[in-house]
Design a protein around this nucleic acid. Structure first.
Length: 341
DNA sequence: CATCAGGGCCCTG
DNA sequence: CAGGGCCCTGAT
């Protein structure tokens, strides 16, 4: 469960000093048809995430930068369909005219990251009548799990989330993007884009620490090194069964049980995997599931498994995002107290 | 001012 | 396998 967003659709403006910046003038427009049901807004926008300058959302529209195959793209998606008849108008912005094979690869990658092909019918049918989950499913059915970034980028996010409050995580990530990322301009937006892992591999730990990432500098450097040396193969990891995947992820320096939990769910979509509930999540789930202040994690884990089985982790996502969508429109006092900015 | 905990993880004993 | 140390920040 990656967290928190600090109010509204406010977006962080990338600092325009000291940075490489590119205007993406070439565009390719395509139409995509995700597997129904597909809820566009609930999929592309996660109110529980903290804001970052590489993404921008407004109702029916999603923009992001995309660093893929050593090239920076601008992605725009517009909702042109309905939950039962989904249709997305995708525009790929780039510096140059793109060859068709590359376009196909970009689409395939987006299709993975936005889960366009995932089938949720079993989940929906099975829990339509569930007292707690049923109403949430009716409201949000077709909400898919996304990782808008690559595994490397998701790892960096996991690292800045560790042992920090929202505000600090935001600060660390923005500092990194400003210092080592780039800016892309397309469709009237300027967004940050990530850096190649090699870039940080070469940077000294001391320089990284200047960005106020603290002891995490070492983690970020080692992870960047691992990707530079191609020690981590995202494609290969995707095909591993849960236990092996978990073992591989834990080998990554700086990744422990809490980060594994996020990665298993958001990046690898293992909806049946749930082993750890970190303290902050515990507080929120205690309220959501029991309307109590604090329920032991062991009990939560057992109950969730009994009730929702192999769909337990996806269930939590539905309940969680539903809560944060509510928070957009009305204040949820007990939640506000838990969100420390 | 000083102290401390925090949405972990590594490393040591 | 428990617990100390680590970075920064804001709360007390």
């Amino acid at each position: 469960m990656r967290n928190l967003k600090e109010g509204g659709e406010r977006r962080i403006t990338p600092m325009s000093l000291n940075c490489r910046s590119a205007t993406l003038t070439s565009k390719k427009i395509l139409e995509l048809k995700p597997k129904p049901p597909f809820n566009f807004d609930a999929t592309v926008h996660k109110p529980s995430w903290f804001p970052s300058s590489d993404l921008y959302w407004e109702k029916g529209k999603h923009w992001q930068s995309l660093l893929f195959k050593e090239e920076v793209f601008g992605i725009k998606m517009e909702n042109k369909g309905e939950v039962d008849q989904p249709k997305i108008r995708l525009t790929i912005y780039s510096r140059r005219k793109l060859p068709q094979p590359l376009i196909d690869k970009v689409i395939a990658e987006l299709s993975f990251r936005f889960d366009f092909e995932s089938d949720l019918l079993e989940f929906i049918n099975r829990f339509r009548q569930d007292k707690l989950l049923g109403p949430v499913i009716k409201k949000w059915q077709g909400m898919q799990v996304i990782c808008s970034g690559s595994l490397y980028e998701s790892l960096v996010i996991s690292i800045v989330l560790q042992n920090a409050t929202v505000k600090r995580s935001v600060q660390m990530l923005e500092n990194l993007l400003n210092a080592y990322g780039s800016r892309v301009c397309f469709d009237g937006k300027t967004l940050s884009a990530y850096w190649q892992p090699e870039v940080l591999h070469k940077v000294s730990e001391e320089d990284l620490r200047k960005l106020k990432v603290g002891y995490r500098a070492k983690f970020i450097k080692k992870i960047s090194e691992a990707f530079t040396e191609r020690e981590i193969d995202e494609e290969k990891l995707r095909s591993l069964p849960n236990e092996n995947l978990k073992k591989e992820l834990l080998k990554i320096y700086g990744v422990g049980p809490a980060s594994v939990e996020n990665l298993m769910f958001e990046i690898f979509r293992r909806y049946d995997f749930l082993e750890t509930i970190p303290p902050w999540d515990q507080k929120i789930l205690s309220r959501l599931l029991y309307n109590k202040e604090l329920v032991p994690t062991r009990k939560i884990l057992r109950d969730v498994d009994r009730r929702w089985g192999k769909w337990k982790r996806l269930t939590l996502h539905y309940l969680w995002e539903d809560l944060f969508w509510k928070r957009k429109h009305q204040s949820v006092p007990w939640l506000e107290k838990l969100i420390r900015l």
